[in-house]
Amino acid sequence: MNVKSITITGYKPHELNIFTDNDEKVVIIKEALKRRLVDYLNDGLEWVVLSGQQGVETWAFDIVQDLKEIYPVKIALIPPFLEQESIWKEDKQTKYQQMIQLADFYQPLSQKKYENPKQYFVKNKWLIEKTDGCILLYEEEFGGSPQYFYDLILKYQEQHEYNVTIINSFDLNDLAREMQEWESHEDV
């Protein structure tokens, strides 16, 4: 399957017990995202489409910005509604505003502010239908907020081809070990 556009999503920081952006777990998650993204980019990926939620999507945005120096990839920021960041802490709001400025395309799905949880369902469905695949940081046994996205993907895949790359705790643990070994060789 020729994948020209993907979305990247997964857990919010609190679901991963991450409370600062300099947490070691963020470094590992970003490296895992980067490796999967590079695979897609080498196969012709053109667009990464994000809703801009905190956590995996914010970290993915940073990775794509870095990779833009090497690859001709574009990033679209499509939040579910206007001012999704209005209830976030000030530093997160500032980061989100920077993302809007740096995105190649920005357009909220709804021209209204938050009304109800259905707006998140509509966003998830839209992201799946408008992309060729996704990278999902997700743990089936844990569930959490990505469960809704994952369930929609399974339903969508019953009728459509859709490429899914899941990053789970085993992948992250392997990568953490690999990165530790690499660092310990550097120290020698």
Results as ranks from 00 to 15, higher is better:
residue 168 N to H: 10
residue 89 K to D: 10
residue 24 E to P: 10
residue 6 I to D: 01
residue 21 D to V: 00
residue 62 D to M: 10
residue 166 I to H: 01
residue 21 D to N: 11
residue 107 Q to S: 14
residue 96 Y to S: 12
residue 23 D to T: 06
residue 6 I to H: 00
residue 101 Q to P: 00
residue 131 T to C: 14
residue 114 Y to C: 09
residue 123 K to C: 03
residue 120 Y to T: 06
residue 170 F to Q: 08
residue 5 S to N: 03
residue 112 K to H: 14
residue 27 V to D: 12
residue 139 E to Y: 05
residue 54 Q to T: 14
residue 163 N to I: 10
residue 82 L to R: 05
residue 148 Y to A: 15
residue 96 Y to G: 13
residue 116 N to E: 04
residue 120 Y to C: 01
residue 114 Y to K: 03
residue 40 Y to A: 14
residue 168 N to L: 08
residue 20 T to V: 11
residue 59 W to Y: 12
residue 107 Q to N: 12
residue 142 F to C: 14
residue 75 I to R: 08
residue 42 N to T: 11
residue 146 P to A: 02
residue 125 K to L: 10
residue 62 D to N: 15
residue 37 L to S: 10
residue 187 D to P: 00
residue 104 D to S: 07
residue 111 Q to E: 08
residue 94 T to N: 07
residue 1 M to Q: 09
residue 56 V to K: 09
residue 64 V to K: 02
residue 160 H to Y: 02
residue 164 V to F: 11
residue 22 N to R: 12
residue 159 Q to E: 14
residue 63 I to N: 00
residue 52 G to V: 04
residue 46 E to V: 13
residue 34 K to N: 11
residue 8 I to E: 03
residue 149 F to R: 02
residue 12 K to T: 13
residue 145 S to K: 02
residue 159 Q to F: 00
residue 60 A to W: 08
residue 163 N to M: 09
residue 1 M to V: 07
residue 142 F to K: 15
residue 117 P to N: 08
residue 178 E to I: 10
residue 49 V to R: 15
residue 81 F to K: 01
residue 119 Q to P: 15
residue 169 S to G: 08
residue 35 R to Q: 15
residue 103 A to K: 03
residue 157 Q to Y: 04
residue 73 V to W: 15
residue 38 V to Y: 04
residue 21 D to E: 06
residue 175 L to Y: 09
residue 60 A to D: 05
residue 33 L to D: 03
residue 116 N to P: 02
residue 127 L to E: 14
residue 186 E to Y: 00
residue 135 I to S: 02
residue 63 I to K: 04
residue 137 L to M: 07
residue 32 A to I: 15
residue 159 Q to L: 09
residue 109 L to F: 03
residue 161 E to W: 00
residue 138 Y to P: 03
residue 128 I to R: 03
residue 182 W to K: 09
residue 122 V to F: 07
residue 65 Q to T: 05
residue 157 Q to T: 03
residue 61 F to E: 07
residue 100 I to V: 13
residue 59 W to Q: 11
residue 113 K to N: 10
residue 130 K to C: 13
residue 54 Q to F: 09
residue 92 K to C: 12
residue 145 S to M: 03
residue 92 K to H: 05
residue 14 H to E: 09
residue 118 K to D: 08
residue 37 L to V: 10
residue 137 L to K: 00
residue 134 C to G: 15
